[in-house]
Amino acid sequence: MKTILVDVTPFDARDNVLNAAVALAGKNDAHVVGLYVTHARLAFTGLYSLTSPYIHPDTSAIEVTWRAKAEEAITKALANTGLSYEFRHVSTIPSDPMDTLIAQVRLADVFITGIDTDWNDNAVSQSDALGQIIEGAGRPIIIVPEKSDYNPKFDTVSIGWDGSRECIRAVFDAIPILRHYAQCSLISVNVDRADMDARRQSATRMIETLGRHDIVASYKNIKAHGSDIKALRKVGEESDLMILGAYHHRRLRERIFGGVTVSILNSPPCPVFLSR
């Protein structure tokens, strides 16, 4: 984790997202890139189409104000940390804001972003937009929940474990981060009796592999009444970071992310590290 890309569009230039980036960068001695994509959110919220015929979005008054706010936020967060950082403004004109963002994420070890509680785009849900980034970039992303007093801790990390390709990918991508946590657990929820042994075996192998990276991990299968999502959410609430594989099914043209992923993306119980 030597290059950490953090979303500083004004909606996200909140202390919690920046705090998470600064803490992680400090642990890894990483370079932080504060990314501001012109009108990414304007485009998502539909304002883009209203303004673009008249004013070039890069120079519109609101845009200039926001950009200045974003640069100020990243400077304020990093100026006294001794870490190397930069503010990067990327214009999306004339390409699609999502493509521009994804191209930037591919140039970083990890992308850190937040949840936009004011999301009001009917065409694209927020989890869909985040899903597109995870899928398109091929890089892991960390989503920091909306908590104004968020103070990153490195005590417990939980891995949602099902032995699948996506899940394993997330774990390997997270290795440089896992080593900073005092306690690491692989957690499955309500495993069928028939799958129990296979699940335990895959977990044991993963734990061995993590051990060779000097990460001590344990495995636990939680039996929960009610939905798996609820149980996983509870695990998240008690963790400082949660690692998840992002699952999706391709159904015709539509891309539907797995139920767990969508639920967690919509309101993360703790910072969530996702990859696929």
């Binding site: 290059t3 990483a30 390409s95 521009t100 191209a103 970083a108």
Partner: peptide, 20 residues
């Protein structure tokens, strides 16, 4: 490449990898 800025082409990713 649609997203390829010819002037800097691989320079950005090279810098990122060089940090490792």
């Amino acid at each position: 490449t649609p997203s390829g800025n010819v002037d800097i082409a691989g320079a950005e990713i090279a810098t990122v990898l060089a940090r490792h």
